[in-house]
Amino acid sequence: MSILQTTASILQLMVELRRGIRISDVISHLGMPKSTASRVMGQLETYGYLEKDEVQGTFLPGPLLLSASHLVSRQLTLSDHVDVALRSLCERTGYTGYISMLDNQEILVLRVIHGRHALPAVTWPGSRSPAWGTSTGRALLARFSDSQLHDFFASPRVLSQLSGSQQNVSALVAAVALARDTGYASAVNESVTDTASVSCAVGDASNSEAVAFCLSFPQTLATAEELQRIALLLKETAINIARKTGDTLINHQF
């Protein structure tokens, strides 16, 4: 194995374990001899790829990696990160993608990425809708604390929206709680007729910005298995973006 392959394997191990790693981890997970593992980890520390926590005895990303990551994060906004990842998902699945944000208790559509599967209706950038009535809205509301969520549903705008609907606040709060627990929200034949969607939300720790992104597809394709498959794809994507933006509110559980 080349030094580049070895370095990539060690860094990938850190990503998979989601923590700092020890030399014993490298030995057990990568099957590397102890002498080789010690030498390689020492070299990676010397060149700045890794940094050792002497108290815990673990290796973490070093100053070189952190500096490069910071440079990239300064060049790309949260929406840019999401856009790149969502375009890949749209190409992979053929479904339509949306990026949205919360604005004055409503969901505001920022970008639309068209897929190969035709939708009964397309929601265009600039469109607004009640946050509680969409999967993207519920994904973003799931990032709220309990007190923030209470204030949201008590706001005059939301009370006005609910007064003309058949929605029950308790059921909506439960739906948001479910999105918080699972890490994603879904909607089938709700705000858009004959359409299904699955959404995740992700934020940027540097500026508290947060956006939701979703895949939308015809309701006829929305089997339980397909909803779960899309949810896993979106959650993996959200977790990967969160690692780049420092978001700590992401639910890592699958």
Rank of each mutant, 00 (worst) to 15 (best):
Val176Arg: 04
Leu227Thr: 03
Pro120Leu: 06
Ala139Thr: 01
Leu162Tyr: 02
Pro156Ser: 00
Ser163Leu: 02
Pro218Cys: 07
Gln219Pro: 00
Ala201Gln: 06
Leu119Val: 04
Phe153Gln: 03
Thr134Gly: 06
Phe153His: 05
Ser129Thr: 06
Val112Arg: 15
Asp103Pro: 03
Ser145Arg: 08
Trp124Pro: 05
Ser186Gly: 14
Ser170Ile: 12
Arg111Ile: 13
Ser129Leu: 10
Asn104Gln: 11
Ser163Trp: 01
Asp194Asn: 09
Thr182Leu: 14
Arg229Ser: 02
Ser100Pro: 14
Ser197Phe: 13
Cys200Leu: 07
Ser197Gly: 14
His150Phe: 06
Phe152Glu: 08
Arg138Val: 00
Glu226Met: 14
Arg229Cys: 01
Leu110Ile: 12
Thr123Phe: 08
Asn207Ala: 05
Leu172Trp: 02
Ala154Met: 13
Ala131Pro: 00
Leu119Gln: 03
Arg87Leu: 08
Leu172Tyr: 00
Pro125Asp: 12
Thr223Lys: 00
Val192Lys: 02
Ala174Pro: 02
Ala175Phe: 00
Ala142Asp: 06
Leu149Phe: 03
Pro125Asn: 07
Ser165Leu: 00
Arg92Pro: 15
Ala177Cys: 05
Leu108Met: 07
Pro125Arg: 10
Glu106Met: 12
Thr193Phe: 06
Leu162Ala: 01
Leu89Asp: 07
Asn189His: 11
Glu190Pro: 02
Ser216Ile: 12
Asn207Glu: 08
Arg116Tyr: 15
Tyr184Gln: 11
Asp151Glu: 12
Thr96Trp: 04
Val122Ile: 14
Thr136Gln: 08
Glu190Asp: 07
Leu89Tyr: 11
Val122Gln: 06
Glu106Trp: 05
Thr136Val: 06
Gln148Lys: 06
Val176Trp: 07
Ser100Trp: 13
Ser135Leu: 08
Ala205His: 03
Ser163Tyr: 00
Glu91Cys: 13
Leu110Pro: 03
Ser197Asn: 09
Glu190Val: 13
Trp132Gly: 01
His150Thr: 11
Leu86Gly: 12
Ile107Trp: 11
Gln228Ser: 10
Asn168His: 10
Arg116Val: 10
Ile99Gln: 14
Thr136Asp: 11
Val173Asp: 03
Ala171Tyr: 02
Gly126Thr: 04
Ala175Asp: 09
Gln161Asp: 06
Thr193Met: 10
Ser135Pro: 01
Val173Ser: 02
Ser208Val: 12
Leu141Thr: 01
Thr193Ser: 12
Gly94Thr: 06
Leu221Asp: 11
Ala179Asn: 02
Thr123Ser: 13
Ser206Tyr: 08
Leu86Arg: 12
Val211Glu: 13
Ser163Pro: 00
Gln161Ala: 11
Asp146Thr: 08
Gly126Gln: 03
Ser100Met: 14
Ala174Phe: 02
Val122Lys: 10
Val211Leu: 15
Glu225Arg: 07
Val176Cys: 06
Ser206Val: 13
Thr195Asp: 05
Val173Gly: 01
Val211Lys: 09
Ser88Pro: 03
Asp204Tyr: 12
Gln166Lys: 07
Ser165Ile: 00
Glu91Ser: 13
Val192Arg: 01
Arg157Lys: 15
Asp146Pro: 10
Cys90Trp: 04
Val112Thr: 15
Met101Tyr: 14
Val109Trp: 14
Tyr95Cys: 08
Ala139Met: 04
Phe152Met: 04
Ser145Gln: 02
Trp124Ile: 09
Phe144Cys: 09
Arg128Cys: 10
Gly203Ala: 13
Asn207Pro: 04
Asn168Glu: 07
Ser147Gln: 13
Leu159Val: 08
Ala154Leu: 10
Gly115Cys: 02
